[in-house]
Simulated scan of single mutants.
Amino acid sequence: MPHAKKATLVFLHGFAESPAIWTDFTRGFPAHYRLLMPALPGHGPQPQPVTDYSMEAQAQAVLAQLDAAGAEKVLLVAHSMGGYVALALADAHPERVAGLVLFHSTALPDTDEKRENRTKNQDFIRRHSLDKFMNSFIRPLLAPANRERLGTELQQLEAIGKATPEVTILGGLEAMKHRPDRTQVLRDARFPVLFISGHDDPAVPLDTLLPQLALPAQSHALLLQGVGHLGFIEAPELTRRAVLDFAAGVFGK
């Protein structure tokens, strides 16, 4: 089937990640879907640092990649910071969005406490190096019961983070501090939204996400016990099935 005829799923990775996080997750997806996994600015195997890491600029970079691929209306599957980028894209170009999966992500802006923590992280990186930061940053994102079980996957994610340019990490932290409230995007959405959340997610606490479930006209949710912020490796079968079922509903396949 020609690419232009295929329903397109666009997978957006999160902060200090790369498209590689989706490799195992998307293995075995039906051939009638076209899968795109763009690298966000400054990320990926051949990162090219940029000067603007705002969610709006990142969304425009994703949109340019969609245009280049001839993808007009897509289902966005977006993890963490990727969700902030997806919401910025949906805010500017809702006509390009067939559906949205907020995969451990939120439409809320940072709290004052979160902004302070991001500034502390920036200071730590400048003083002690990106490598030392990554050695302590990713592990707490997993639910406690999964930290030893997923040791290999944790090391892979740490390696991806360490390979990301420091300027990208610092820029991403700064941009996330200043992103706006985009709950109105959910209220105005004419496309369905799937929320995937972990009960043990320290980055997007469940109690902050639950009120958002009522905002879209078409809302779906997968709430996972024993899962933190990385459900694509903590509960891959459940989250994969949720995305596929949601895609089938969006595209009628």
Rank of each mutant, 00 (worst) to 15 (best):
M1F: 05
A4D: 14
K6H: 03
G14M: 09
E17M: 10
W22T: 01
W22Y: 08
T26K: 05
F29T: 01
H32V: 01
R34G: 07
L35C: 13
M37V: 02
H43Q: 06
P45E: 10
P47V: 14
P49A: 11
V50H: 01
V50W: 01
Y53F: 04
S54M: 12
S54W: 11
S54K: 14
M55R: 10
M55H: 08
E56I: 13
A59Q: 12
A61E: 03
V62G: 11
L63T: 03
L63R: 14
A64W: 03
Q65N: 11
A68Y: 06
A68I: 03
A71K: 05
V74E: 05
L76H: 02
G83D: 15
G83F: 04
V85Q: 09
L87W: 09
D91S: 14
A92S: 15
E95D: 15
E95R: 07
V97D: 07
V97Q: 11
A98D: 04
L100H: 07
L100T: 06
H104C: 14
H104S: 10
S105M: 02
T106G: 01
T106F: 08
T106K: 07
T106D: 09
A107R: 12
L108P: 00
P109R: 02
E113D: 12
K114L: 15
K114G: 14
R115P: 04
N117M: 08
R118A: 02
T119A: 13
D123H: 09
H128M: 03
L130R: 14
N135A: 05
R139N: 02
L141H: 04
L141M: 15
P144A: 06
R147K: 10
R149F: 00
L150G: 06
G151C: 06
T152C: 06
E153Q: 15
L154R: 01
Q156A: 08
I160P: 08
A163P: 12
E166L: 03
T168A: 14
I169A: 12
L173W: 13
K177D: 07
K177M: 13
R179Q: 07
R179N: 02
F191D: 10
P192Q: 12
V193I: 05
L194N: 06
I196V: 15
S197N: 15
H199R: 10
D200Y: 05
P202C: 04
P205M: 10
L209T: 11
L210K: 12
P211S: 00
L213V: 03
S219K: 02
L222T: 01
L222V: 04
L223K: 06
L223T: 05
L224S: 03
L224P: 04
Q225R: 08
G226L: 13
V227Q: 05
G228L: 11
L230T: 09
G231N: 07
F232W: 15
F232G: 03
E237C: 04
L238Q: 13
L238M: 13
R240Y: 09
A242H: 05
F246D: 02
A247G: 04
G249T: 00
G249W: 11
K253F: 11
